Simulated scan of single mutants.
Amino acid sequence: MDAFYASVEQRDNPELRGKPVAVGGSAARGVVAAASYEARAFGVRSALPSVTAKRRCPQLIFVTPRFEVYRAVSAQIREIFAEHTDLIEPLSLDEAYLDVTENKQGIAIATKIATIIRARIKDVTGLNASAGISYCKFLAKMASDLNKPNGQAVITPRMGPGFVEALAVKKFHGVGPATAAKMERLGILTGADLKARSLPFLQEHFGKSGAWYYQIARGIDERAVQPDRPRKSVGAEDTFDADIVDLDAARTELTPLVAKIWRHCAAKQLRARTVTLKVKYSDFEQITRSRTVAELIPSAEEVEAMARGLLDPLFPVEKGIRLLGVTLSSFSDEHDAVEEQLRLKL
């Protein structure tokens, strides 16, 4: 979807149309969750601190997120996908992979399917979507950004290797700023540079990811579309109106975060073994602390106790805390938990 959250807000509020809009944060605190294309023209993007966004675009309009609305629209879009295939792998509320090799309507050309889906999304939701069509997930993702907004692009098997060779590694999906900087220090600036490095070289410098980089440098990605891709983590975070310097105040802020993620996990019948605490300081330095236990965490109270155990050693703080977050991971579902308990009792 194109600028999904911001586009929904502009759709629902005509006064926002054609104006630079940022969803999330505020003029003084927080970060941008999504930016309209009008805002992007000023360099405003997701994850940008709100104060920086406002500096770049003084006329920027901040809108409070409405995630229940975004989820409802996302569900409408998933129903449209399901008209064509059951092989749907959601990545987020506004993005998914579809395998249409065999599709319900028997359409032989994938580009035609993409055109039909985008038109249906526009008819049903009033929103624009872009699509990338290719023979593997990596290149489909890269293609989806080529003709945004409201467009689509194709990377064929013949085009794939050459496309990757010409692409800057910092633009590779899945290569973050830190990895891109490391590659550049090694003289790897483009896909061609990456392709020229041997598998042992890449494994030496990038560990398990080395084999992945070796493959995608050649336009090879054999990952299947996984319609039942398991959720790897559930988290919640909050940016505060004023920086926190007191331990008791920080502990208090953990309670609603834990309650929120516990409700979500309970509804999805998920149980976790790992608790991760995220802390962002007033100067935007960010740290995480994690703890994993052998057995599934039994209650929200225990999650909060573990989170406090990660938080307490950080105090006293030398600088204020502007954001706290809590994440649960290492999941097993409730059925697995019951089976595990029965085995232990027997």
Rank of each mutant, 00 (worst) to 15 (best):
S36K: 11
A39P: 03
A41I: 07
F42I: 09
F42M: 11
G43H: 06
R45Q: 14
A47W: 13
S50R: 12
A53P: 06
K54V: 09
K54S: 15
R55H: 12
C57P: 02
P58N: 14
Q59K: 11
L60S: 12
I61M: 02
F62A: 13
F62H: 15
P65W: 06
P65C: 07
P65T: 09
R66Q: 13
R66E: 08
F67M: 15
F67V: 07
Y70C: 02
Y70R: 02
R71Q: 12
V73F: 04
A75W: 00
Q76R: 14
I77R: 01
I77K: 01
E79H: 13
F81C: 05
A82Q: 15
E83G: 09
E83C: 10
H84M: 09
H84T: 08
H84F: 15
D86I: 11
L87M: 14
I88F: 00
P90D: 03
L91K: 09
L91N: 07
S92E: 05
S92V: 01
E95G: 03
Y97F: 15
Y97H: 03
T101C: 11
N103E: 06
K104Q: 06
Q105F: 02
Q105A: 14
G106N: 14
I107F: 04
A108I: 04
I109S: 06
A110L: 07
T111G: 15
T111M: 09
I113T: 11
I113E: 09
A114E: 00
A114N: 05
T115A: 13
T115V: 11
I117W: 00
I117P: 04
A119E: 13
R120P: 00
